[in-house]
């Protein structure tokens, strides 16, 4: 029983990790509707920035978020403005996908050139301390990630629902042409949304880096999980992404323990496929938005 509780707790903590990495992608994938394969590399870059700032300035890794999130915002906005936007009206929108695949590979190899293949480890600064909560133990850093992911989801939800810009973002997501007719600067909204999405990854990176070693391929594992989480939750649904992340985290942890670590991906993606077959729009997606927006 004790082990079961520990496995479930590990699953929830893993879910928190997946959630915080995926929230940014919900905005980019769910709203700008760009399949951004470089999402994982944004995380990797954010983790390296955290590493460099935390070791270079000798500050707590969490403090680096003040620089990392804005830098990632700029990176995301630049990507949208100078890479995706020129391709928005390409004859075939799949061109964008290949552009982000190219960006992903380029960034990964750039990191390889700059940092080498060795791991970089951000100082844990006490975040790897175990907290005992009843019969289970969790790491301080994991607990922080879990709480911040909830706060981020609630915050973004509020932003999208209640603010003028948030409404504009949702309007663009629902129907790009109609939004433009209503006087919304669509290109600007895209740049902004892409930037916010990337900034969320920057926040995630500062929290994740002290717990996990950073290397040029760090993003590859997360990017696939992030797409799964976003699709599972329902495109553009931020709360859905959170629930999706928890489900994936729990299945990952439970199957890893009860079925075997070699089969955990089979279990995760098996359940993912099953849910999609039963509910093609994802858990919280109302309906496919693809036919509304060109």
């Amino acid at each position: 029983m004790e082990t079961f509780l520990q496995v479930v707790t590990n699953g929830l903590m893993l879910g928190g990790l997946f959630a915080i990495v995926s929230v940014g992608l919900t905005l980019i994938f769910g709203i700008v509707k760009v399949i951004n394969f470089a999402h994982g590399e944004y995380l990797m870059i954010g983790m390296y920035l955290t590493f460099l700032l935390a070791t270079g300035l000798d500050v707590h890794p969490y403090l680096t978020v003040a620089a990392v999130a804005p830098l990632l915002f700029v990176l995301g906005a630049l990507t949208q403005r100078f890479l995706i936007q020129p391709l928005m009206h390409a004859r075939d929108e799949h061109v964008q996908i290949f552009a982000t695949v190219g960006l992903s590979t380029a960034l990964m190899n750039l990191a390889l050139l700059v940092f080498g293949a060795d791991i970089a480890s951000t100082p844990a600064s006490g975040l790897r301390t175990s907290l005992h909560i009843g019969p289970v133990r969790i790491l301080a850093g994991q607990a922080v990630i879990f709480c911040v992911s909830i706060a981020l989801v609630v915050g973004l939800h509020y932003y999208l629902q209640r603010t003028q810009t948030g409404r504009a973002i949702r309007a663009v997501a629902q129907n790009r042409d109609a939004a433009q007719l209503m006087g919304i600067n669509v290109n600007w909204i895209y740049v902004l949304t892409f930037g916010i999405g990337a900034a969320c990854v920057g926040l995630a990176a500062s929290l994740v880096a002290p717990l996990y070693p950073t290397q040029p391929t760090s993003g590859t594992y997360f990017v696939l999980i992030a797409f799964v989480v976003v699709v599972l939750g329902g495109l553009g649904s931020i709360g859905g992404a959170f629930v999706g992340a928890m489900i994936i985290g729990l299945i990952d942890s439970l199957s890893g323990f009860y079925i075997g670590s070699d089969l955990r991906e089979v279990a995760v993606f098996g359940v993912f496929l099953l849910i999609l077959i039963l509910k093609p729009s994802g858990l919280f997606g109302r309906r496919s938005l693809a036919h509304v927006s060109p």
Binding site: L14, S253, F257
Partner: peptide, 16 residues
């Protein structure tokens, strides 16, 4: 037991 090298969590394996 096998696992992918770029995994981010080995806690279930450890508990096992």
């Amino acid at each position: 037991q096998a696992y992918p090298a770029n995994t981010v969590d080995m806690s279930s394996l450890v508990l096992d």
